[in-house]
Design a protein around this nucleic acid. Structure first.
Lengths: 341, 341
DNA sequence: CATCCTGGTGTCAAGGTTTACATCCGCCGC
DNA sequence: GCGGCGGATGTAAACCTTGACACCAGGATG
């Protein structure tokens, strides 16, 4: 047994005294080959330690066993568990997960399409909210895609994510139950569909309680800094809310920081809520009350759908929305009595 | 231009009125082909939008353009930036990054070797601290490898990481400068070489100040829970330290939590330090004074070395140790005056 | 007894690329 | 005028696998 070069199907065939076609069949369509032959082949495979050369296989089949995930930032605490879910599911099906990191630069995404063009990816998972395309090149042939974390603009691909609207609504209901009547939404954005949906859920929740009027909505870009800045802008006005419903946890962290810096206590003076339940959320002080995304589950479901698509089966729904859990920690309290501004 | 199927080298050759060999040469050995021909080929490539089929290429060359990274947990906040560094560097060199997630299970790693066996990975990045091997199978041919985050036991592969010893020593020096004389090291471990090295740096720092005697060393497994448990055990004794030097940030978080739960104030009553500077570190209260790993840099350097290895060039050093930065926040203070136990 | 069918197996082409080798052509030096 | 050389290009094999097709033997059917 020379180990200089890995065993090929031919080595197995020689050892089992059959043709290479029979070996291939023994592996992929066992019922088509006689039991005795199958046994010989299996033994030969064990002896040689044969593993099919994936390159040759993909070349022949015209389809690779890689799934490409394109994310703006792999380090985003929201993405990691989704990636794990994706990866687990992919591996179970014999696929590998290739990662692409665009650093928020749309053009970077285009670079990864090379992998697709080069037949190196059977499918695409998009965290970006848009399909990477090069304006100069003619539209490339796109493989099966599934969007995750952020839906695609025109519903161009199935989306798997959390029920943003329902989650936001739950959050508002909690605040209302605590007596809050003036609640500011921090993080309105036209760019991110998921954030927009949270805003809608917020509106719905207020409307359901007959509080539609007098709400405050602050633009913010979803970063800690954005949250902080929004609070500063808000304090320039005279009608302050008693609670801040933030579009995500980063924003909430910024809001808490700004409030604390001004000498207020959360939740005694103001209540603050987040969304996503990033790992830091529990370490903020006060620990953040937020909405937990079932991230692992999202990854798993998305990969299931994508692999189905690769096999040619259409998904049941255009959007698979998972219901998030409300995680109550200590950043929400009853509305302060007799406070006036 | 039919877009049903991607352009092959043959399409380009036909359009440029040359043979496919010439096209291949024009791409890979431009100096070997006449300038006029090169021009024709370039034009034909642009028109057809040709991208070489990576599968066919890898098959022919017997080498893929993928690097496989095996990590116990992709979600580990310490790993993400390293992955980004790896990925950036790989992409720049035309390689893709494949991720494997072992979930801490050594056997899982073995599964990923299939990729290697199947010629799907030209190199391996190991976050695990060991080479995945199947005890039943004969040792597989291993590709070039580089260890990251955790060195390999027998120095089986080049390691790129932070100077654990130097970092730990810096930390101890800071504590000593603040007047601390009794410092406990929390997180001693025989399993993780990196943790062991931090322990050594700790010892060295104390020895340099003539404080070798009377030190306390607590075992802990590097988790938040481990840190908490270590504090509880320590409080069973009578000689408490004034500062806790923790092996990593998770442990430090546990220590702070335990101390706070007992009604102590950090840093007034006790000082606590971490190691790694995970994203949560700044959000703990008090914000954690710790050692920042240049993670992105680690990833980049590791990939550089690995790609060199793939090309057949040996690395300069068996270990590349990057010096970490000391990040001073608010979990360290002067030793409490007149405290007695 | 001829024919058809069927289950089991072998042969061979194809998939796209790279590269060793062959070919061709113009030009130099003798 | 000719041998030879070198630069530019073409030809074809090889990388490994899969699957359409062909083949063969033997049993069932007429």
């Amino acid at each position: 047994m020379k180990k200089s070069t890995p065993a090929t199907i031919e080595d197995v065939a020689r050892l089992a005294e059959v043709s290479i076609a029979t070996v291939s069949r023994a592996i992929h369509m066992p019922e088509k080959v006689a039991a005795s032959t199958r046994l010989k082949v299996d033994r030969a495979i064990a002896v040689t330690g044969y593993t099919a050369n994936a390159m040759a296989r993909s070349l022949r089949l015209g389809r690779s066993n890689m799934i490409l995930a394109i994310a703006p930032d792999i380090g985003d605490p929201n993405f990691a568990p989704i990636l794990i879910g994706l990866e687990n599911e992919a591996r179970a099906a014999g696929y590998g997960l290739l990662i692409g990191h665009t650093q928020g630069d749309p053009l970077r995404g285009v670079e990864y399409l090379k992998f697709q063009n080069a037949n190196q990816a059977a499918g695409l998972i998009l965290f970006t909210g848009y399909v990477p395309t090069d304006p100069n090149q003619p539209a490339p042939r796109l493989p099966p895609m599934v969007a995750v974390s952020e839906p695609l603009a025109q519903g161009a691909a199935p989306f798997v994510g959390v029920d943003d609207r329902g989650g936001a609504r739950k959050m508002v209901e909690l605040l209302i139950a605590q007596g809050h009547r003036k609640i500011a939404f921090v993080g309105d954005s036209r760019d991110r569909l998921s954030h927009h949906r949270r805003r809608i859920g917020f509106d719905e929740g207020l409307a359901a309680a007959g509080l539609r009027a007098g709400q405050t909505v602050m633009d913010a870009d979803g970063t800690l800094e954005g949250g902080r800045a929004a609070v500063e802008r808000l304090f320039l006005r005279d009608d302050l809310p008693t609670a801040f419903a933030c579009v995500n946890d980063q924003t909430a962290a910024g809001v808490i920081l700004a409030l604390t810096a001004r000498g207020y206590d959360v939740p005694r003076d103001f209540s603050v809520t987040g969304f996503d339940d990033i790992p830091q959320a529990g370490f903020l002080s006060p620990a953040l009350t937020t909405i937990r995304q079932p991230r692992r589950q999202i990854g798993q479901t998305a990969m299931e759908i994508l692999l189905g698509l690769v096999e040619g089966v259409a998904p049941d729904e255009a959007e698979t929305l998972l219901m998030p859990d409300l995680i109550q920690r200590s950043s929400v309290g009853p509305v302060p009595q007799g406070r006036r501004y």
